[in-house]
């Protein structure tokens, strides 16, 4: 059977992680987790992966603080952030819609975003509901800002934004997103219509996001699926038809 949408995303994200020494994955992130494991499978043993919530892929021994201390020291090359809202300046909102004191909607909270976004060089933003409600002109609450003023210690920041419809690159100089590729089955018109913020469209057309080849699909459906099932049994069962254990 051909690639499923999740497998296209996993492959695209794994491509952003090639050659990195240490990839960390936070909570509620099955697709980034699978992508990190795929990148590790292809790295010939040179990539480390730390997954929060995993017992097999978590080598920290100094308590909850160690992930953050490790990131602050520059020992983590890539991390993933999502948001209830993400805006055109790459600001991320994990807290609330409306007045934060009497919100219309309240989400779990900022987790480590207010720190990790500043210190991890490649922060990959992912939002698997690409609508004007989630990709907005301006977020209602800044859990972590996309960019900082000159003088603020900021070795890290946004690297890409991937959604269920497309992939955006980040123009750090212009502080804007630029459409990089459109996932199979989606169109440029649809993306313009479903995105609440303005973004750049490169002249000369936008390519389709590459689909995984047969070898990659095989690795995803066997070795990656088996490992991700430890942490996300429901996700693995739904996407890869992996028996839960």
């Amino acid at each position: 059977m051909g690639p499923r949408p999740e497998e296209v995303l996993i492959t695209a994200i794994a491509g952003m992680l090639e050659g990195l020494g240490h990839i960390a994955v936070g909570a509620s992130s099955p697709i980034p987790g699978a992508a990190a494991l795929l990148a590790r499978e292809r790295s010939a043993g040179t990539t480390r992966v730390s997954i929060l919530g995993s017992e097999r892929n978590n080598f920290f021994t100094d308590g909850g603080k160690e992930l953050f201390d490790c990131a602050g020291q520059g020992r983590i090359d890539a991390f993933f952030l999502s948001g209830a809202q993400i805006d055109g300046a790459a600001n991320v909102n994990l807290v609330s819609i409306g007045d934060p004191d009497r919100p219309k909607a309240r989400f779990p909270g900022s987790f480590g975003s207010g720190y990790l976004y500043f210190v991890v060089p490649r922060v990959i933003l992912f939002r698997l509901e690409h609508t004007p409600r989630t990709l907005v002109e301006r977020v209602d609450f800044i859990s972590a800002p996309g960019f900082s003023e000159d003088g603020v210690y900021r070795p890290g920041g946004p690297h890409k934004l991937i959604t269920d419809r497309c992939l955006f690159d980040v123009d750090r100089d212009r502080r804007r997103f630029r459409l990089e590729s459109v996932h199979p089955g989606h169109t440029l018109e649809e993306i313009v219509e479903q995105t609440g913020f303005a973004f750049d469209i490169p002249p000369g057309g936008v390519p389709e996001t590459p689909v995984p080849d047969d070898d990659t699909l095989e690795v995803i459906r066997t070795r990656v699926a088996g490992q991700i099932a430890e942490i996300y049994p429901d996700f693995a069962a739904r996407v890869f038809a992996t028996p839960t254990h």
């Binding site: 308590g63 603080k65 953050f68 201390d69 004191d101 919100p103 309240r106 900022s110 987790f111 975003s113």
Partner: peptide, 25 residues
């Protein structure tokens, strides 16, 4: 989501002090 937390925040019956993981550690 935490349903009772969400309801209490919307009703204004609890105060939330938002932080970030490494700040608490």
């Amino acid at each position: 989501l935490c349903p009772r937390f969400t309801a209490a925040v919307k009703a204004g019956t609890i105060t939330v002090v938002d932080s970030t993981c490494p700040a608490i550690h």
